[in-house]
Design a protein around this nucleic acid. Structure first.
Lengths: 216, 216, 216, 216
DNA sequence: AATGAATGAGGGTTCATTCAT
DNA sequence: CATGAATGAACCCTCATTCAT
């Protein structure tokens, strides 16, 4: 006998995850009601528990799925062959922001989940943090370090340190963009130009330092 | 005439605030139960409402009190007269971390309150944000800018940009220390040496840039 | 397609309303515990809030439903075609009392709700009063005035004044019956004969007062 | 040794009773907070319990005291020697209303207590009702019946029936005046003229009903 | 005697989870 | 498998009453 309908309807499951992502991103874990997700997903509340067992587990699955989605979407090659660092950063940021505009919920959740990790129910916290540790190693460093290797570093400066600094900048922009998108969902990418300009100022300092050349 | 029993027993009030600080810092607003605070403070639940009226107000009072406490404790002069930027940053970080070790709950709450501001009940949010705006002007900027003014900045670099970068570093350390303290409450200040060393690496880059001198 | 389990189980809803009516009638709004209603109705406390949202709203619904019920039950034609006033009053009272015996809770609530209107929580009061104004116009006046029109009134006596006097009598009996039923739930209708007799005495006085001298 | 201060300070006790009267009259038993009484009476909350044992008992004492006060104040002779019934009723009502204006709280409580008797806590109810039965016999009938005795009643009409009818009128006015005073505390006695006029209309009807045919 | 700070039982309400259909 | 009505534990808050001073 052929099961014409699989035990788990993937379409419904996807819908639940999508709506959960939206809700968790905008209200945080504790303020998200399973009721709201069920309504949004046009699915019975019971089904959510059939598929995911508990709200906590739904959260975990949602965060995981969202991270996977972002990773799969991101095309790191976009800025890999930039002529110089500033161009790379500029391209990277533009690309990231464009993704953020295209997938605001995904990005919002990824940041929200990270931010609220410490304030989750005791039992949920370690499981979420496990996701970070699994994910983190693979991603961002890969994007930046190849470019850095092509740059002549001042003696005593490690590529790793620079990479971390750049990462900090990236996160900074992420936070700012999220907030800007939150305040105006229809924002255009041009609106982020001043933000990018500021980061380029930061990069300039990183590149050349802020001390006058003869100050040493 | 001595009031043998003052209208508000300052000792109990302080105990409540202290325990509230601890609870709010570690579980966030929504997950903190007034019951737990009452038990911790060895006080009846009713008394909390006698003193503070509501959980929301207790939160507000706790945050305010904690901020005041930190501000009063902090001795900004410690690093004000440092010979150079690195020394200043080093002293500042050491001092901040030592305070954080001494007053882990106070610092944890101050960061928690800031972080969770967006996830508070609708009605509480504006009141908490009012606290930030009242407080923010006075503090951190004042510490950094005077030192920056004494430094010869490279042409095209604004002191403001540098100050912002340094502030980002400061927050970074704050987050890291909080997490380290959270994971090990008995951590010694020496344990932060690598963190401080790393920040000094960052500062070095900010100061001199990471490009080799002849790279331009 | 038959909904095997309707969104709102009318049986349970009716049971809740019925028990609420009983409780509100006997203990008043403030002293009625939702717990007690839930237990009486053999239903979880949560369900009451699912169906009615709040205790205040349950009260409103209960009062409305009870009024509708009384209005639908009451058969005003019973005494409309009485030969004379006394007969009409007698029939009306008997009928009213028999209904009161048959539906003691309904009548008790309707009087209770009216009486306690002024002592309800501030926010509930206007909503209850809105029910009165909606209901009041339709009922009692219609019953009495047609009969009055057929009677020859003494000069200088307005039908309106007489109607008001009769209304006062009616309310008087209502109060007395309620109290008698409250004191003895198994009371028989014969027990009210003295009360009715007394009212007829009152009517006799009224009648020979407002009738024209030659009307006898 | 002489007790310079008696165990119960009569002045404070009187103050408590007075404020309790005011509060109970305006908010009913359940909505009156002992706190409010204590504050009003400028007395500690503890003292109320020292003097009266419980809120319930304070209520009882307040009601009793208020009734005594009204009885002592009322000068029944005012209308005893009226030439006719209408004049008597008019005088009586005017006098009652003037008292009600002079002692609004006392009258408000006496009516409130009567009205809310059924909605008091189970345990309090019988004790309050005991007060009515003690009081009721003595009062109002005494005012009316002597006058009635001087009037030639139509055959078949008992003075008792008429007295009860008049009592109903009196209560009717009481309710109306209370409400009018509640809506406008500064109301003048002239404002009640229409109300009195209406009652006189009622009396007119009553009168021509119970007087012997040849009494006109 | 007088105080009023402290208590805590009890109420209305929310919402994740269950389970009969 | 899917539903959503039903559940009930848990939370915040009130206020009569107590009791140490």
């Amino acid at each position: 006998m052929v099961k014409s309908r699989p035990a788990v309807d993937p379409e419904k499951k996807a819908r639940i995850l999508d709506c959960a992502m939206h809700q968790f991103a905008h209200h945080g874990y504790r303020d998200t009601k399973t009721d709201a997700i069920a309504v949004d997903a046009n699915v019975s509340k019971g089904l959510i528990f059939n598929y995911f067992g508990s709200k906590a587990n739904l959260y975990l699955e949602t965060v995981k799925t969202t991270y996977d989605k972002i990773i799969n979407i991101a095309d790191l090659s976009v800025w890999q062959d930039s002529p110089d660092l500033k161009t790379m950063v500029q391209r990277a940021l533009r690309y990231k922001i464009s993704l953020q505009l295209q997938y605001p919920d995904e990005f919002a959740l990824s940041m929200q989940a990270y931010a609220e990790a410490g304030y989750l129910p005791e039992s949920l916290r370690p499981k979420v943090q496990a996701i970070w540790t699994t994910m983190s190693a693979a991603e961002v460093p890969d994007m930046v370090s190849p470019i850095l290797k092509r740059l002549p570093l001042r003696e005593g400066v490690s590529a790793d340190t620079v990479a971390k600094l750049l990462l900090v900048m990236t996160n900074l922009i992420g936070e700012q963009s999220k907030e800007m998108i939150r305040q105006n969902a229809d924002i255009k990418i041009e609106a982020f130009d001043p933000v990018i300009a500021q980061v380029l100022d930061y990069i300039d300092i990183l590149e050349h330092g802020f001390l006058a050349p003869n100050a040493d």
